[in-house]
């Protein structure tokens, strides 16, 4: 059951082909070596340290909603309507 987690790119370091991504309160550094054409604000699927593919904000939202429903990630205690903020 290989879940791939959608996360949002918050910073890109071109010199190392790495990005800082955020999901919930957590940020992590992942490699962008396997994909093209991503920018800060995009959503990507993560798998063991790599961004696997770019997905739309809608797809990310749908997947995250599923993961919250399945208890795989916790929903934030307060809600917000700003789609760009998944912190």
């Amino acid at each position: 059951m290989c879940l791939a987690i959608p996360a949002q790119i918050v910073a890109i370091d071109d010199s190392t082909q790495a990005a800082t991504v955020a999901l919930g309160d957590v940020t992590k550094i992942v490699s962008l070596a396997l994909i093209d054409d991503v920018a800060v604000g995009d959503y990507v699927l993560l798998h063991v340290g790599y961004a696997l593919s770019k997905i739309s904000a809608e797809e990310a939202e749908r997947t995250l909603a599923l993961m919250v429903e399945a208890g795989l990630v916790e929903a934030a205690p307060t809600s917000s309507t700003d789609g760009a903020e998944a912190r």
């Binding site: 999901l23 939202e61 909603a65 916790e74 929903a75 307060t78 809600s79 917000s80």
Partner: peptide, 13 residues
């Protein structure tokens, strides 16, 4: 957008 709280590692480790 779904708001996500504290994340451990949902894929598991």
């Amino acid at each position: 957008m779904v708001q996500v709280g504290t994340m451990t590692d949902p894929a598991g480790r």
